[in-house]
């Protein structure tokens, strides 16, 4: 996802554009979910239960914002999601 720039000036009160993101969360991860397309049955339980909404309905992971909690891997009945060391993807 594209981030927005830091605002040049502050608003004149505490009211500002909704959903304005200037930083990502991907750097928090020590492990990343990796999806095995062959095993995925598109049940979308991972999409549903992700606290961060970082798995799309088409089951692709937004690694800019995934924090690597591992809920998706745990909830995946067919075992299509593996948690892999983030360091290996550096």
């Amino acid at each position: 996802m594209r981030l927005k720039p830091l605002p040049d000036t502050i608003p004149d009160c505490t009211a500002f554009e909704a959903g304005y993101l200037v930083t990502q969360n991907g750097g928090w991860r020590s492990e990343r979910p990796v999806i095995d397309e062959a095993k995925c049955v598109k049940c979308r339980q991972c999409y549903l239960y992700c606290p961060d909404g970082t798995i799309s309905q088409e089951i692709s992971v937004d690694y800019d914002f995934c924090k690597g909690c591992g809920i998706c891997a745990k909830i995946c009945k067919p075992g299509a999601i593996a948690m892999r060391r983030e360091a290996d993807y550096a």
Partner: peptide, 28 residues
Amino acid sequence: TENKIDFDRPKNFGFSAGPDWNAQFHRE
């Protein structure tokens, strides 16, 4: 007022502003 709930241009209100921004709000 522009600073109201608006469903065409939604806003977040009453937010936090850390040390980098806080004084500017009070100055204003």
